[in-house]
Design a protein around this nucleic acid. Sequence first.
DNA 1: TTGACAACTTACTAACTAGTAAGTAAAATC
DNA 2: GATTTTACTTACTAGTTAGTAAGTTGTCAA
Lengths: 190, 190
Amino acid sequence: MVKIENTKRTILNLAESLLQDKGFNGFSYAHISSDLGVKNAAIHYHYPTKEILVCAVIERYRDRFKLWINNSRVKDLAPEKKLDWFFSIYSDFRADNGKVCLVGSLEAEFNSIPGAVQEEVQAMHKELLAWLQGMLKEGRDAGVFNFSGEPANKAALILSSLQGALQMARALGSKKFRDVIEQHKLDLLA
Amino acid sequence: MVKIENTKRTILNLAESLLQDKGFNGFSYAHISSDLGVKNAAIHYHYPTKEILVCAVIERYRDRFKLWINNSRVKDLAPEKKLDWFFSIYSDFRADNGKVCLVGSLEAEFNSIPGAVQEEVQAMHKELLAWLQGMLKEGRDAGVFNFSGEPANKAALILSSLQGALQMARALGSKKFRDVIEQHKLDLLA
DNA sequence: TTGACAACTTACTAACTAGTAAGTAAAATC
DNA sequence: GATTTTACTTACTAGTTAGTAAGTTGTCAA
């Protein structure tokens, strides 16, 4: 049966999209099932609880990110190009119906989501931060990036800003998002 | 009757607190009424709909912010101290049970909140940004702050980062938030 | 003293929520 | 060819949601 895997994957796609669009408390099994054209019990068959479903979404995203950063198409890039690649992830979210990042969406509602989801979000955020930190250090060592202080702190600043900028763009428009990206480049490459 | 105004104010306080804690879709009239020790219909008496209630919360916050920035205790501060004052707003949120800012909370759920609330959020975000931009320009003109590009863009970067950093701190702890503040100062005062 | 009004409570509704139990049809396995 | 398993559907539950209508009580003004 090919349809099984298609259905499971489509459920994850829809859940991911809804999370980035409406947030954890803003979407329901009914949204997914009507979009998919099945009954809500079918979603529960594949993912018994919302906690399990959202954890699966984040786990898939984490796997995807690990694959990306270990792929030579990203790994062998110059630091400057790595930065552009990372920014493009967020630009693509913005271009895709003004989505925000998973981490931002779930952390904004952190105190009203299940514990297992909180743990996944924590792990995901750490991984994003670790890669960004390594990239910034690599770039500064190579003389491409210019910033003071710890790469870890600069990474936290940039990541928090991208997260916030996607949210900001919802109220103030895409130009504000692009302005933030430009300012980061200006700060980093000065 | 003093109690009227007390009740109305307490409802706004609780709604504001719940918004910053659990988000728009994460709190209900039942939360407020049980905290206040009244029935949910009493909340509807003062604020007929959730849309009206949350708009009132934001309007009050906007008034408060306007009062602050026009008060000599803030207005007459040196740019460096104004920056510290602004950062302290966010540090205080973090210290208060890990709250996030209203703007961040509502923009993360932007596509699942009422239209009138969206408009209030937009107006509020513009006002925060405008003040921050003016302060940054003032500081650079006075030779205190150092940054390239437009003050508007640097303001967008800093504001988005503070918004994101409060969210980040929920998953990764308060130290990360402090690290971001430190990095902003390092970037700005270098 | 009466009447109006403010600030509620009681009691409800209709819609939606996550989640379940039991049944079904088709495909895969033995 | 019989049996098991997969991927569902039908039909439901218990809880929660925002919101309402009608009644109650205390305060105040005429």
